[in-house]
């Protein structure tokens, strides 16, 4: 809240600032892509290690990657999404992130 009177910042800039705040809050989707080399069991293992998924969840997502070519494995704030991408790349999985729609 502020006192009535002319704002120090032009409206256009303030709208921009608001959008940036809203943008920061929008999560990032982490996607894992199918790959002809990684073993199905290895992918399940990595999902369990990185995300702590149960066996059922890890296997369901692995099958989604295998059958549909990709799977959404996490939706997180930017920094956390980057950490997941880094870990997944460390294990040799092809993982990317993009703004959640």
């Amino acid at each position: 809240m502020r006192l009535a009177g002319p704002a120090a910042t032009p409206v256009k800039d303030r709208v921009q600032q608001l959008e940036e705040v809203a943008d920061r809050d929008r999560p990032w989707d982490v996607i894992v892509w199918d790959d002809p080399v990684n073993l199905m069991s290895y992918v399940v293992f990595v999902f369990r290690r990185v995300f702590g998924f149960t066996e059922d969840v890890a296997r369901k997502l692995m099958l989604e990657v295998h059958q549909q070519g990709r799977a959404l494995v996490a939706s997180e704030p930017r920094e956390q999404a980057e950490m997941y991408v880094q870990q997944l790349h460390g294990y040799g999985l092809q993982a990317t992130m993009q703004r959640s729609t």
């Binding site: 073993l39 199905m40 069991s41 290895y42 399940v44 293992f45 369990r48 290690r49 066996e55 890890a58 296997r59």
Partner: peptide, 11 residues
Amino acid sequence: ILDPASVAHYG
């Protein structure tokens, strides 16, 4: 050995 659940149906 490391994670038997990971190979339960595929190994």
